[in-house]
C-alpha cells in the first residue's frame, strides 16, 4: 500500500447489460494490479473464479440497499474491512446492482478521504436500452445510471444495425451530453481506459477505441491485420520487422515463441514503443499470433505483410 487514497471505479448498468462479462474481461487482461471487486449484483453469470485466481484479485459479495436495515450494513462493513486491511488493493471495483443509483455509491468514494473516485462506467445494452429507459418500473433508475456515469459503454453493437446504433447514441447523448461513448461488443474495453477513462481526453479515448480491437463494431472505421505464427521467431528479426512502423499501425500485440529460449513472449507495440516481455500467463489454448489495428484506408495490411513476409524463413 502506498498510503494514498484507494482508487475506486463504479460499474453500473441495468440487468443483462454485460457488467459481469465486463469485469471478467478486465480481469483477463494481464496486469500487475491487486484488484478487489465488490459485487453488488447477482445475475446468472458469476465472476470467473479462474480469472480471479490468475489475477490475485479478490471478490466480495454485497447485499445492496438501504442503510436502515442490514442491507446497508453489508456495504459499510465490507468497505471498512477493505480500507482497514493491512494491505489495501491497488484498485477497488464496485459492481453496482442493476437497480442501484451510481451516485449513492460514488458519493461514498467522494466523501471518504481514503478513497478516490476513478470513474463511473455504465454498460448499456444497445438492443434494449431504449425499452428500459421508457420502462414503467425501472425507467427512472436506468436513466439515472446513464446520467451519473463518465463513460457509457455501448455494448452489444453486433446485435443492432447502424440505424439503431446511431439512434441509441443520440438517445444516450441526450441523457448525458458530458459522458464519453464507447461502442463495443462483448463488454470489451481496453484495460487502460477502464482504469482512467474520466481523465482521458476525447482524442485519447478515440485512440483507445482504435486500440481496443473488439472487432465488428469498429470494422467500418478500422482495419485489422492478423498473422498466425507456427514456428519459432528470432527476437532480433522480430524487432527489426517492427522498427519504424508506419504511423498507420496504431497498435500491435500478440504472443510469439522465441527461438533462443523456445519460450512464449508477449509483444506489445503502441504509440511508437515496442515491448517484448516473457509471457507470464498459462499458454493453454493460446495460439501464437500477432494482431494489429489502424484506421481504415491506409493500407496497413500491405505494409505489415511486407514487414513480416520473411519473418521465419532464412534471413535475406
Amino acid at each position: 500500500m502506498t498510503g494514498g487514497a484507494l482508487p475506486v471505479s463504479i460499474i453500473t448498468g441495468y440487468l443483462g447489460a454485460g457488467k459481469t462479462t465486463f469485469i471478467n474481461q478486465l480481469l483477463s487482461n494481464p496486469n500487475e494490479l491487486a484488484i478487489t471487486i465488490l459485487v453488488n449484483d447477482f445475475g446468472s453469470i458469476s465472476i470467473d473464479d479462474a480469472l480471479i485466481e490468475s489475477q490475485s484479485a479478490d471478490t466480495i459479495t454485497l447485499a445492496n440497499g438501504c442503510i436502515c436495515c442490514t442491507l446497508g450494513s453489508s456495504l459499510v462493513t465490507t468497505l471498512c474491512s477493505v480500507l482497514d486491511a493491512p494491505r489495501r488493493p491497488d484498485w477497488l471495483i464496485i459492481e453496482a446492482s442493476g437497480v442501484a443509483e451510481p451516485a449513492k455509491l460514488y458519493n461514498i468514494a467522494k466523501a471518504e478521504p481514503d478513497l478516490s473516485l476513478e470513474n463511473v462506467i455504465c454498460l448499456v445494452d444497445c438492443a434494449t436500452i431504449s425499452d428500459w429507459l421508457s420502462d414503467h418500473d425501472v425507467g427512472s433508475v436506468v436513466a439515472r445510471q446513464v446520467q451519473q456515469s463518465d463513460l457509457l459503454l455501448l455494448n452489444k453493437c453486433d446485435l443492432v444495425d447502424e440505424v439503431k446504433q446511431s439512434s441509441v447514441t443520440a438517445l444516450l447523448q441526450q441523457q448525458n451530453p458530458k459522458a464519453q461513448l464507447f461502442p463495443t461488443v462483448d463488454s470489451k474495453l481496453p484495460f487502460e481506459v477502464a482504469r482512467q477513462s474520466s481523465c482521458l481526453s476525447k482524442e485519447n479515448l478515440a485512440q483507445a477505441m482504435l486500440e481496443s480491437i473488439p472487432g465488428q463494431s469498429h470494422d467500418r472505421e478500422f482495419e485489422r491485420w492478423t498473422l498466425e505464427l507456427t514456428g519459432v521467431i528470432e527476437e532480433k528479426r522480430l524487432r527489426k520487422a517492427l522498427r519504424h512502423l508506419d504511423s498507420c499501425v496504431h497498435r500491435l500485440k500478440g504472443l510469439v515463441r522465441l527461438e533462443h529460449c523456445n519460450e512464449i513472449a508477449q509483444v506489445q507495440y503502441a504509440g511508437g514503443r515496442l515491448k517484448i516481455t516473457p509471457y507470464q500467463g498459462s499458454d493453454s489454448g493460446l495460439g501464437e499470433a500477432l494482431v494489429a489495428i489502424g484506421p481504415a484506408g491506409h493500407d496497413m495490411a500491405t505494409h505489415l505483410d511486407q514487414r513480416f513476409s520473411n519473418i521465419s524463413g532464412p534471413e535475406r
Partner: peptide
C-alpha cells in the same frame, strides 16, 4: 450513507 460513511468508519459504528 455516503456522507455518513467516513464518520461511521472512524467511530467504528458497526450496524
Amino acid at each position: 450513507l455516503a456522507a455518513m460513511f467516513p464518520l461511521m468508519r472512524r467511530l467504528k459504528i458497526n450496524l
